[in-house]
């Protein structure tokens, strides 16, 4: 059976997620993680509880010593996986003999089996398939890429900027700072959806207005042999996240959850659930 992975916003959610059936729990650390999860400091973590980490910043020359040292420090934790997108992490992982824990997840760049297999053959634990491709394309990749992972749930990262876009706006308009604020959204003038936007010291991120869900697709992914499925925790309430996790776990155990799915959508009808790009092929 494949592994069920979830990313969470708080230390408390780590244990709760394991209790609910997660096989791995991913957190964001101060400094080296660049996503919309709330950050946890290294000191807060219990070295006896297994955890996975987003080490996914673009790393600039002036950050190398600090991040290399942080990378060394996390080796003292019970690390299950390290998610990265800058290949400098492969070099550090070779140095600390932890390449088999590393997962290449550049969000947008792995859209075909040849690229995925090239990265996997560096000795990595897994490669995360881009959620920008259709279900059919995803299934093709799963069949042809060993141990691949795909995101099945959550807001999807839509853009990633080094610039402080929110601060540029607030400064320009003499407004109070909105840095590190998890309650911000933007809405395109002619469209309805509200897209979470988040700025911290690493820059600015924008996520999709919709929340991907794959309750009906997970059995199909499992049938094709998916090794790892990922639930994104960014901008979702803990209860909603755990409810989704529970349903996915039961689906993986081949339990009948149709009634729970109906109840889930009724309970969270305010959330814009969507099938993402599963049936929508982007054009050139």
């Amino acid at each position: 059976m494949g592994k069920l992975i979830i990313s969470v916003n708080t230390k408390e959610m780590i244990l709760k997620s394991y209790e609910m059936g997660a096989d791995e729990v991913v957190i964001s650390l101060n400094q080296c993680s660049f996503n919309g999860l709330k950050k946890i400091s290294l000191e807060e973590l219990d070295s006896n509880i297994p955890v996975s980490i987003f080490f996914n910043c673009c790393i600039f020359p002036e950050q190398i010593d600090e991040y290399h040292s942080l990378f060394e420090k996390i080796q003292s934790l019970k690390i299950q996986s390290i998610y990265f997108q800058d290949p400098i992490i492969i070099l550090w992982a070779r140095e600390f003999n932890c390449l088999e824990k590393c997962i290449y997840r550049p969000e947008t760049l792995v859209t075909n089996q040849m690229d995925a297999n090239w990265w996997y053959s560096r000795g990595l634990k897994s490669v995360s398939i881009s959620p920008l491709i259709t279900l059919e394309e995803t299934l093709h990749m799963i069949r042809n890429v060993p141990n691949s992972e795909c995101v099945i749930h959550g807001h999807l990262m839509m853009s990633y900027s080094k610039r402080y876009l929110v601060s540029a706006f607030t400064n320009h308009n003499d407004l109070p700072s909105l840095r590190n604020n998890y309650d911000l959204t933007i809405q395109e003038e002619k469209r309805d959806g509200h897209m979470p936007i988040y700025e911290d010291e690493n820059g600015t991120l924008i996520y999709t207005d919709f929340v991907l869900e794959s309750f009906n697709e997970l059995p199909i992914l499992m049938k094709k042999g998916i090794s790892r499925v990922f639930v994104n925790g960014e901008f979702l309430k803990d209860e909603e996240l755990l409810d989704a996790l529970s349903i996915y776990k039961q689906i993986m155990e081949e339990k009948d959850v149709q009634n729970q799915i109906v109840s889930f959508f009724e309970k969270y009808k305010e959330t814009s659930y969507s099938k993402g790009y599963y049936e929508e092929k982007t054009i050139q």
């Binding site: 550049p106 947008t108 839509m158 853009s159 990633y160 900027s161 080094k162 982007t282 050139q284």
Partner: peptide
């Protein structure tokens, strides 16, 4: 304005794939 290759604003707004020329 975003890291090149990591932006899918266009994909979401127009279904035109920014990483394939759209």
């Amino acid at each position: 304005v975003n890291y090149s290759g990591r932006c899918t604003l266009s994909n979401r707004m127009t279904l035109r794939d920014a990483n394939r020329g759209g």
